[in-house]
């Protein structure tokens, strides 16, 4: 029992060793990231490249997506908020440009569907578990199983 536990902890250690970025001493000619780049990446991940299959403008190498990235940078530099930048592209391309569906009627529906499915699945699960009414009877010799065995012979 000790070995598996040890291994598991080792894996955990490996997982956690990576978490904090360590700032080191800056070399003389080191260029730092422009402020706001992290925010730009996060925002760009949510905007769909209009000419691609389903890539965000961060991922896409298309010229349209790259120009949109330049525009996002410009707008961030102007001090516009994420919501304003998102709205800028939405006014031009519509909801299509948002990779996460917005809270319109259709958007709400698609966000609600997983919950509905999960509720349905939970219902099925509950029903199946409730069906175990005759569990009190020790069941191995239930005739239905014999019927199964008869049906299952090949010849």
């Amino acid at each position: 029992m000790i070995r598996p536990a040890f291994l598991a902890l080792g894996l955990l250690g490996a997982l956690l060793a990576v978490a904090p970025p360590r700032p080191g001493p800056a070399a003389a000619q080191t260029v730092a990231e422009a402020p706001g780049e992290a925010r730009i990446r996060a925002l760009a991940r949510t905007l769909r490249c209009p000419v691609c299959q389903s890539e965000s403008i961060l991922e896409s190498r298309s010229s349209t997506a790259r120009e949109m990235m330049v525009m996002v940078r410009e707008m961030v530099a102007e001090g516009r908020s994420d919501a304003a930048i998102t709205e800028f592209f939405r006014a031009r391309y519509g909801d299509f440009v948002l990779l996460a569906p917005p809270p319109t009627a259709a958007g709400r529906l698609v966000w609600a569907l997983p919950l509905l499915f999960l509720a349905g699945g939970g219902g099925v699960l509950a029903l199946a578990l409730r069906r175990r009414a005759p569990a009190a009877v020790p069941s191995p010799g239930r005739p239905a199983l014999d019927a199964d065995r008869l049906r299952e012979t090949e010849l």
């Binding site: 209009p50 525009m71 592209f89 031009r92 519509g94």
Partner: peptide
């Protein structure tokens, strides 16, 4: 040349 007006018009292709 850079497609800025295209983006303003929401041009796809």
């Amino acid at each position: 040349p850079r497609g800025r007006l295209g983006i303003d018009f929401g041009v796809y292709g």
